[in-house]
Simulated scan of single mutants.
Amino acid sequence: MISRATARERTTTSPRSWPPRFPSVKNRLHLDVSPIDASTGAEVAGLLSLGATTVDVGQGSTRSWTVTA
């Protein structure tokens, strides 16, 4: 078990807050989506309607793929 002093050292908030809040880590998941019964544009539109956003990571406009986050 972690002592209170050790837990406090790992917090990102005030040392008086309990229980401790540990720093969050960016969770990332990479999926390659290849639609079978629809166009890529239709698949991207579906992902955007679910809350995804397009991101430019330097892929350029000549690529056939879209990056979303």
Results as ranks from 00 to 15, higher is better:
residue 35 P to N: 07
residue 25 V to W: 02
residue 45 A to M: 04
residue 26 K to E: 15
residue 30 H to R: 10
residue 50 L to K: 14
residue 37 D to A: 13
residue 23 P to S: 09
residue 32 D to H: 13
residue 49 S to V: 05
residue 23 P to E: 11
residue 50 L to R: 15
residue 52 A to K: 03
residue 37 D to F: 04
residue 43 E to P: 00
residue 52 A to H: 10
residue 20 P to F: 00
residue 48 L to C: 05
residue 37 D to Q: 08
residue 53 T to D: 12
residue 26 K to C: 06
residue 48 L to M: 14
residue 26 K to T: 14
residue 40 T to W: 01
residue 46 G to E: 13
residue 22 F to E: 10
residue 35 P to S: 09
residue 52 A to V: 11
residue 40 T to M: 04
residue 33 V to T: 03
residue 28 R to Q: 14
residue 53 T to N: 11
residue 36 I to D: 07
residue 44 V to A: 04
residue 36 I to P: 01
residue 34 S to C: 08
residue 16 R to V: 07
residue 28 R to E: 15
residue 23 P to V: 03
residue 51 G to K: 13
residue 42 A to C: 03
residue 50 L to T: 12
residue 25 V to P: 00
residue 19 P to Q: 09
residue 34 S to W: 09
residue 30 H to P: 00
residue 22 F to H: 11
residue 22 F to N: 07
residue 50 L to Y: 06
residue 16 R to I: 10
residue 24 S to G: 10
residue 42 A to L: 06
residue 26 K to F: 01
residue 32 D to W: 12
residue 47 L to Q: 02
residue 30 H to M: 06
residue 22 F to P: 00
residue 41 G to H: 04
residue 42 A to M: 12
residue 41 G to R: 13
residue 51 G to F: 10
residue 47 L to H: 02
residue 52 A to C: 13
residue 31 L to P: 07
residue 29 L to E: 15
residue 17 S to Q: 15
residue 17 S to Y: 03
residue 35 P to M: 09
residue 25 V to M: 07
residue 24 S to V: 11
residue 35 P to C: 04
residue 20 P to D: 01
residue 35 P to H: 03
residue 43 E to W: 03
residue 47 L to W: 02
residue 21 R to F: 06
residue 51 G to A: 02
residue 30 H to N: 11
residue 32 D to I: 14
residue 53 T to V: 15
residue 46 G to R: 15
residue 17 S to A: 12
residue 32 D to Y: 04
residue 25 V to L: 14
residue 27 N to Q: 14
residue 35 P to D: 05
residue 36 I to G: 01
residue 19 P to T: 03
residue 22 F to I: 11
residue 36 I to Q: 08
residue 38 A to F: 00
residue 37 D to S: 15
residue 31 L to E: 01
residue 20 P to C: 09
residue 24 S to I: 12
residue 48 L to W: 01
residue 45 A to I: 03
residue 25 V to F: 06
residue 39 S to P: 00
residue 23 P to G: 12
residue 29 L to W: 09
residue 35 P to T: 07
residue 52 A to E: 03
residue 40 T to E: 03
residue 19 P to G: 09
residue 42 A to S: 12
residue 18 W to A: 03
residue 36 I to C: 05
residue 19 P to L: 09
residue 24 S to C: 08
residue 36 I to H: 07
residue 51 G to V: 13
residue 39 S to A: 09
residue 39 S to M: 10
residue 47 L to I: 05
residue 42 A to I: 05
residue 43 E to F: 00
residue 50 L to I: 04
residue 39 S to Q: 05
residue 34 S to F: 09
residue 19 P to M: 01
residue 26 K to V: 13
residue 49 S to L: 10
residue 36 I to V: 14
residue 21 R to N: 02
